[in-house]
């Protein structure tokens, strides 16, 4: 029976494990304009990515956007998640499906939706112009704000669903007990519900942070040409610049930074909350 794991395991090893090792090896090679790369063992590519102000800025933008989106998503998702988790009507399963629906529609379609919402002739500007609140269309598109707004909208369902499933597992009596013992709603919320739902918050926030760090379609479509994030930068190194060793190094930096920030972030928050 245990052998049934083998086919799937071998395929993942072949299609993911092997390729990742190959790319890791390439990231230590030397760039060569003529032959794309030369066998070498150098840390030059990593050094360039860290020292070059152009790439420093891209990495910083990516981290800032991802952190902002994660915080905003968490704040925005808690209410709906609680609502969904504590709902008892027959609408509950319908609403869960409705929450899941945007996830399955896919990022490209949804980015297009945000384009139609934010462009100069889009819904927001048309409404504001029509109501006479503004006389010139606002520049909403091609701003960092547009990227953050759309990214939050795109990852929000993940956060709501993750949080809702954890909140659902917290017995309602715990909240009642806090209230009966005289805790005010705010106290009950911060001292009982939040600590108990912390695993859900951390799981959701980690997932959302990873997705935001690696966002491709939103920065490309809503950020405009000046706005650069890591995922499009990695793609560009392979598709346009053909600098494989450097592209490979960028990909690993993106992976490493994501992993490190996710683990450090979750353990810091978990510790803080336990100590407090």
């Amino acid at each position: 029976m245990a052998k049934l794991v083998l086919p799937a395991g071998l395929l993942v090893l072949l299609l993911l494990g092997g390729p990742m090792l190959l790319m890791l090896r390439y990231s230590f090679n030397e760039y060569d304009p003529l032959y794309i790369m030369q066998q070498a063992f150098t840390f030059e590519n990593y050094a360039k990515a860290v020292v070059d102000p152009y790439y420093q800025k891209i990495l910083m933008t990516t981290i800032t956007v991802a952190l902002t989106c994660t915080v905003l998503t968490t704040l925005l998702a808690y209410g709906p998640a609680y609502w969904l988790a504590r709902m008892e009507s027959r609408w509950k399963s319908k609403l869960t499906i409705l929450t899941m629906f945007p996830l399955l529609v896919g990022g490209v379609v949804r980015s297009a939706g945000y384009l139609a919402l934010l462009s100069t002739t889009g819904l927001i500007n048309a409404t504001l112009l029509g109501l006479g609140i503004i006389s010139e269309p606002l520049t909403l598109l091609y701003t960092p704000g547009a990227v953050i707004f759309a990214t939050v909208g795109i990852v929000l369902p993940y956060m709501i669903l993750t949080l809702a499933s954890v909140i659902e597992s917290i017995p309602r009596q715990v909240e009642d007990a806090a209230a009966n013992l005289g805790a005010r709603p705010a106290t009950a919320f911060f001292r009982v519900l939040v600590p108990l739902s912390l695993p859900g918050v951390l799981a959701g926030a980690s997932l959302v942070f990873i997705l935001c760090m690696n966002a491709y379609a939103t920065p490309l479509l809503l950020g405009g040409p000046q706005f650069q994030m890591m995922a499009p930068a990695v793609y560009e190194q392979f598709a346009k610049a053909s600098n494989w060793p450097f592209g490979a190094a960028l990909a690993f930096i993106l992976l490493m930074v994501t992993v490190i920030l996710t683990t450090v972030g979750s353990s810091v928050i978990a510790k803080r909350y336990k100590a407090g």
Partner: peptide, 24 residues
Amino acid sequence: AITTFLLGPIIVPGIVAGTALYLT
């Protein structure tokens, strides 16, 4: 560990896994 390994492809960012596959 095996479960994490099998879930690996959706944990590793698509753009990273995609470039690694491309090179392979």
